[in-house]
Design a protein around this nucleic acid. Sequence first.
DNA 1: CCTCAGAATGACCGGCGGGTCATCAATACG
DNA 2: CGTATTGATGACCCGCCGGTCATTCTGAGG
Lengths: 219, 219
Amino acid sequence: MGRPRDPLAREELLAAAVTEFVAHGLEGARVEDITARAGRSKGSFYLHFKSKEEAFQQIVEALTRDLDAAIMPPPQGSDLADAAELLLRAAAADQRVFEFLWERRAVCRMVLTGAGSMDYRHLVDGFAEKARASTLQWLRWGQAQGLYRDDVDLEVASMAVAGAYDRVARAVITAEHKPDIAGWVSEVSRLVTRGLGTPRLLALLDGLTPAAAPDRKAG
Amino acid sequence: MGRPRDPLAREELLAAAVTEFVAHGLEGARVEDITARAGRSKGSFYLHFKSKEEAFQQIVEALTRDLDAAIMPPPQGSDLADAAELLLRAAAADQRVFEFLWERRAVCRMVLTGAGSMDYRHLVDGFAEKARASTLQWLRWGQAQGLYRDDVDLEVASMAVAGAYDRVARAVITAEHKPDIAGWVSEVSRLVTRGLGTPRLLALLDGLTPAAAPDRKAG
DNA sequence: CCTCAGAATGACCGGCGGGTCATCAATACG
DNA sequence: CGTATTGATGACCCGCCGGTCATTCTGAGG
């Protein structure tokens, strides 16, 4: 029976790796700096990870898993009044995703810049495409429910909508102080519903949220 | 009087550098590959550029200059009818920018991914922020002209709008075949004007473009 | 206490690639 | 032709850093 492993080593090395990857990117981060930050020897890194890239992968996979768990899938069907309310619920879910992004903003920044590495730029593309695909599903569902106009090209609109949310998300994760997430999400949501919605949806939403609109300009 | 310089050397080296930077990013591209691609010796690279980074800078500066020239600044003032027509002209200018992006798509891809380098990720941020600032100016002008609703938070809306255009731009520069740029730009423009516009603007635009709307769904 | 086995260590190895520079090559001029 | 000057060349230099491994250290068990 040999010496037992230090139970904290792996997690401390991973935490140090996050810090270094965030600051310098995958390629700029040095194993020597990571291990020094964790107060360990350079060689001990390789007792836990096969390579620098493997540590990075594990960090990204954990983030991806948690982010997927935070994203709300589109519903399967409803009538118009229920559907409008589901849209409001989707906006609340969007807000929770943005809260998540704020809490994990450093790692998200790292991932959303492809870690400063050509080998991982597919991360950016992957996240963007996943968001657009989800948006497209929502838009298809909304159009089928009569929420969104029939003349909207959903392929293009899904790109634009996903891009709008993406840009605001980037502003959230790069802000120095926590922004007004609820207000921001609400503003984007309004742009989308007004930009794509049928007159009936707009009337419905105006009925559901009457007092909110006049106060906005003061904020 | 010594040996004259090869008049083609610098441009050929720059063209080769573009190809290598696009494929491998700034850090992944090797001077040896660049010079081999240009059919020259490795050392001759340094007769023209102080370093690999300097060659990259020159490529980016040329692109930035050309892109700035392609972007239309916001107008200074107008009445409502003129303003609505100016909006249509802005949409045409947007289309020209997207045409430019398509023509220079390889270099644009390179720049918009920060060249796979942490040192140049500010390129992405810089372009995004410039686009948002320009959008904000347009939105301010539009709101002052009564085109956009008073209850719109322009700081957030400018992010969302810029993000929508940015995302579609990314789709253009990564497409394998030239997309329907006019149709895409028109769709985003409609999302924005409907999402932000006053009822009077919407009525005006419907008057200016009556036949376009019903044909859209077929395309 | 001693022995054993596995963890931890950090000097070292070696591949990579940006940049250098002694040498060769190519013009112009007398 | 020879000479002088400048451009072009590619073998070499050397710093960087991921990963290795012989050595030392440290718990557990007897």
